[in-house]
Deep mutational scan, measured.
Amino acid sequence: EVPFKVVAQFPYKSDYEDDLNFEKDQEIIVTSVEDAEWYFGEYQDSNGDVIEGIFPKSFVAVQG
């Protein structure tokens, strides 16, 4: 069931425009499960802007 919160276990950096880049310990709200390997989610950056994109499930852990 979406949405749910995950926390980055590792930093994720990608050159693909659709990917969500983040640092370790970033909290991310997952709004869609793309497939067995990928989530789609969002978070607010330090400027208060909402950043969204896809990212690999293996880089995050589900909270709770």
Score class of each variant (00 low, 15 high):
residue 1 E to W: 12
residue 2 V to E: 05
residue 2 V to C: 12
residue 2 V to T: 10
residue 2 V to A: 07
residue 2 V to K: 06
residue 3 P to Y: 07
residue 3 P to R: 06
residue 3 P to M: 04
residue 3 P to E: 03
residue 4 F to P: 00
residue 4 F to N: 03
residue 4 F to H: 01
residue 5 K to M: 10
residue 6 V to F: 04
residue 6 V to W: 01
residue 6 V to D: 00
residue 6 V to S: 02
residue 7 V to Y: 08
residue 7 V to K: 10
residue 7 V to A: 02
residue 7 V to S: 04
residue 8 A to F: 03
residue 8 A to E: 03
residue 9 Q to Y: 07
residue 9 Q to K: 14
residue 9 Q to I: 15
residue 10 F to M: 12
residue 11 P to F: 05
residue 11 P to E: 09
residue 11 P to S: 13
residue 11 P to D: 10
residue 12 Y to Q: 03
residue 12 Y to I: 02
residue 12 Y to N: 04
residue 12 Y to L: 03
residue 13 K to W: 13
residue 13 K to Q: 10
residue 13 K to R: 13
residue 14 S to V: 02
residue 15 D to G: 11
residue 15 D to M: 11
residue 15 D to N: 12
residue 16 Y to K: 15
residue 16 Y to S: 15
residue 17 E to R: 10
residue 17 E to T: 11
residue 18 D to R: 15
residue 18 D to H: 14
residue 19 D to F: 14
residue 19 D to I: 09
residue 20 L to N: 01
residue 20 L to D: 01
residue 20 L to R: 01
residue 21 N to Y: 11
residue 22 F to L: 01
residue 22 F to N: 00
residue 22 F to M: 01
residue 24 K to N: 04
residue 24 K to F: 05
residue 24 K to C: 07
residue 25 D to P: 02
residue 25 D to S: 06
residue 26 Q to W: 06
residue 26 Q to N: 00
residue 27 E to N: 05
residue 27 E to T: 09
residue 28 I to N: 03
residue 28 I to S: 00
residue 28 I to H: 00
residue 29 I to H: 04
residue 30 V to F: 04
residue 30 V to Q: 02
residue 30 V to T: 01
residue 31 T to L: 09
residue 31 T to Q: 05
residue 31 T to E: 02
residue 31 T to M: 08
residue 32 S to T: 07
residue 32 S to M: 11
residue 32 S to I: 07
residue 33 V to P: 03
residue 34 E to T: 13
residue 34 E to A: 14
residue 34 E to I: 15
residue 35 D to H: 08
residue 35 D to T: 08
residue 35 D to R: 07
residue 36 A to E: 13
residue 36 A to K: 10
residue 36 A to H: 12
residue 36 A to S: 13
residue 37 E to P: 05
residue 37 E to Q: 09
residue 38 W to L: 09
residue 38 W to K: 06
residue 39 Y to I: 02
residue 39 Y to E: 00
residue 39 Y to A: 00
residue 39 Y to D: 01
residue 40 F to Q: 06
residue 40 F to A: 06
residue 41 G to V: 04
residue 41 G to E: 00
residue 41 G to M: 03
residue 42 E to N: 13
residue 42 E to V: 09
residue 43 Y to G: 00
residue 43 Y to E: 00
residue 43 Y to T: 04
residue 43 Y to F: 08
residue 43 Y to C: 06
residue 43 Y to V: 02
residue 44 Q to F: 11
residue 44 Q to S: 09
residue 45 D to R: 06
residue 46 S to M: 11
residue 46 S to Y: 09
residue 46 S to H: 12
residue 47 N to G: 07
residue 47 N to A: 08
residue 48 G to I: 01
residue 49 D to R: 14
residue 49 D to M: 14
residue 49 D to P: 01
residue 50 V to G: 03
residue 50 V to D: 03
residue 51 I to R: 14
residue 51 I to L: 13
residue 51 I to C: 12
residue 51 I to P: 01
residue 52 E to L: 08
residue 52 E to K: 15
residue 52 E to P: 02
residue 52 E to V: 13
residue 52 E to S: 15
residue 53 G to W: 03
residue 53 G to F: 05
residue 53 G to E: 01
residue 54 I to M: 15
residue 54 I to C: 14
residue 54 I to L: 15
residue 54 I to T: 14
residue 54 I to A: 11
residue 55 F to R: 00
residue 56 P to S: 03
residue 56 P to F: 05
residue 56 P to C: 07
residue 56 P to D: 07
residue 57 K to M: 12
residue 57 K to D: 06
residue 57 K to Q: 13
residue 57 K to H: 07
residue 58 S to W: 11
residue 58 S to V: 10
residue 59 F to R: 04
residue 59 F to C: 14
residue 59 F to A: 10
residue 60 V to E: 03
residue 60 V to K: 00
residue 61 A to M: 12
residue 61 A to C: 14
residue 61 A to Y: 12
residue 61 A to G: 07
residue 62 V to P: 10
residue 62 V to F: 13
residue 62 V to Q: 10
residue 62 V to I: 14
residue 63 Q to G: 11
residue 63 Q to N: 09
residue 64 G to Y: 11
residue 64 G to M: 12
residue 64 G to K: 09
residue 64 G to C: 12
